[in-house]
Structures are given as C-alpha cells and as structure tokens.
Amino acid sequence: MTSKTPASASPEQAKPSRSPQLLLALAIVLLLVALGIWYATRMGAESTDDAYVEGNIVQVTSQVSGTVTVINGDNTDYVAAHSPLVTLNPVDAEIQFERAKSNLARAVRQARTQYYQVQQLEAEVSQRKNDVRKAQDDVRRRNQLASSGAVSREEISHAEEVLKNAVAGLEGTQHALAVRLAMVDNTTLRTHPDVLVAASNLRDAYIALHRTQISSPVSGLITKRSVQVGQRINPGVALMSVVPVDQVWVNANFKESQIEDLRIGQPVELRADAYSRDTVFHGTIVGLDAGTGSAFSLMPAQNATGNWIKVTQRVPVRIALDAKEVERHPLRLGLSMRVSVDTSDQTGAVLNTTRPTRPAYSTSIFDNELKDANQVVEQVISANEDRGRNNQRVNL
C-alpha cells in the first residue's frame, strides 16, 4: 500500500503575513505625531474648565414708601432703561406737592409784604426826621424871641415838648425799621430765607411725587421679581432685578500653578457648554484678582492647624468678551465656559496699575429730578413776585 505525500506549500503561503505589524507601527507613528502636534500647540497656552459667565444684577428699589398699584414687567421680560417698572399710589405725594406749592406762594407774598413794610417805614423815618427838624426850628425861633418877651415861657416849654415827642417818634420808627430790615437786609425776594425754605420743601415734595414712578436704571431682562400689587413697600427693599445681558464677562479660575505666564491683554478663546464646539467666543484678559477665591470667602480656611492638608488654590481671572459675538450668541449668567489663553505674548502687566478714567457703570434716570423740580419752583415764584419792585437788594 503506497502512502501519498502532501504537496509542498508555495513560498507565498509559507511566508508569514506582516500586515498587522505594519498597521500597528503606522498607528504608533500617527499617535506620536498627534501627541507632538498637541504638545506644540499646548505650549504657550493655559486652559481651564473652571470658568463661568458673570454679569451685573441690578436691583430695582424704591426711594420712597408707598403701596404698589401697577407692575409693568415680569420675569424674563425685556425692559429698556428709563421704562416704568412699578407705580406707587401717588395720592399722598400729590397732596404734599400741592401743599408745598401753596406754601411757597404764600412765602413769596409774605416776603413781598416785608419789603413793602421796609419801604413804608423808610418813608416814615423821613417824615419823622422832617418833624424833628421842624420842631428844632420852632424851639430855636422861640428861644430867640424869648429875650424880647414876645414869646412866653409856657410857649417855649410847649415847643420843647413837641421836639421831644418828634425825637421819640423818630427813634421808635427807626427801631421798627431796623426790625423789618433784620428780616430782609442783604437779600432779594429769591434769596429770602422764608422763600428758600419753602422752595426746598417744594423740591422735596416734587421729587417724592416723581419717585412714586419707579423706572428701570438699565436695559435688560427682568429676574427675581418679588413685589406684588397692593404690597406696602419701604425704601431700599429690592422689588426685582434687571440683568443687562450685554454687560457680561467670564471669570476663569486658574490654578495657582497656571498664573505665572498670564498677563493682561492676552487673547482668549472660549467655548460655552450651552453651544456646540463650533461656536467659539473670543476675549481678552482684563485683570487678575487680588487674591484666591478662598481668601475672599465668607469663612476663609484656617491652615494654622496640625491637620493641615494642602489644597490647590485658584485665582479668578476676568475676561472681557467680544460684544458682537455675545450679541449673536447670547450668554446667561452662570453658564459654564471652557477657556484657553494664548500666553505666548507676555509683555502685558501682571496686575492693573492704571486708574479708571470714567465710571465703569452709570445710570441717568435720576439726572433730571432736581432740574425739573427747579423749574416748578421757578414757575411758582414767577407767578407770585412783583418783578418791578421786589428784586432790589435792601441794605441795612
């Protein structure tokens, strides 16, 4: 019986396949290249995920007490600056305003009366002086005729009594004039003390009436509304808040080991968890805080103990955002951000050393309060003054 020998294998079949080894080597090379590129790009940059959107939360408060009658906005509503938000019952303020107007008008008229009285007493003083001169002439003439016996001693005595009465009348009138002058000397009608007091009271009443209409100090979204219709409110109590959505920035909390190369003015790329990774915000470092977050906490950590454990501290870094990008992709307070800072340029300052040249934030809703009140005062004074006679300064 003959046995069959198997055919010898071909050289291609006997040679082991090297495809898996080549693929593995290629993958390792690609990984090393990717790591090299990543390392090269990460050099000169610092990044953190501990970053959040922050902004101003403007509280709307009342400057006067009153009862709420109207609320013109609710949470999530947009409101423009100077728009009325809350209206208080104005009845009491209107009554006080009308009373103050009447008091100012009366003060102006009383001041006019005092100026008239001064003029009247000045005329009486002139008259009394004439009476004194006449009485003196009578006494002198009678004394000259007394030697010839043409005038009796009784008549001379009578003339002397008339002179004494004239002098006494002059002194009394001069004292009365001094009393009146004490009320108006070195003043005009508009600078009279009684008029100034009444004018100040009218300004107070007008401003109190004006403040029964509570307006928004800034433009933004309403949030945290707590006021209700019919509620009695007191000055300083927060009624609601307005968040200006165009005034937002990012606070990035970098580790203390990361801040060595951070400088003011360095460019920043940011991504928000609220948007896709394709949405990139651009910003600039505008300042590094004066301390770590724990240093300004309500209860700072006390590390002078035996059980001390080192905790990595973080320093808040403020980043200003591109306003146009924020307008296209609005941000809300508290949103998480991923931040990457390009630290290749380190010529900027580490800390701010320049003083602000203008206010960081301001509102103009109160600018015209006093101006409008002054206009009301001017109207009342003009309606009750005698411009032809009472604006002359009276000197003692």
Rank of each mutant, 00 (worst) to 15 (best):
F97W: 14
A9D: 05
V29F: 07
S216H: 12
G293W: 09
A14Y: 03
V79D: 06
S3A: 10
I222Y: 00
V326N: 04
A320P: 01
D246A: 03
S157V: 09
H282W: 08
F281D: 01
L298E: 14
E160Y: 00
G306H: 12
R225Q: 13
D185E: 14
G66Y: 00
T69Y: 01
S362P: 11
R142H: 10
N143Y: 01
D278A: 08
K310N: 14
I222F: 02
G230I: 07
N391K: 05
R328T: 07
T284N: 10
G169N: 03
G293K: 10
L288M: 05
V118R: 06
G388R: 05
N165P: 03
D194Q: 15
V167G: 07
I207L: 15
G73F: 00
E12F: 15
K324N: 13
L298T: 08
N72A: 09
L189K: 01
V229A: 15
S19I: 11
Q96E: 12
R271C: 08
V317W: 01
A301M: 07
R389A: 14
D185N: 15
Q110V: 05
Q63H: 05
V227A: 08
S362F: 09
A80G: 01
P356T: 11
V58F: 11
A290E: 13
V184C: 10
R109W: 11
S297W: 04
A14K: 08
P20T: 13
S65P: 00
P90T: 15
R180K: 12
Q392I: 05
T347S: 14
V53K: 06
Q127M: 08
S226C: 09
S17W: 03
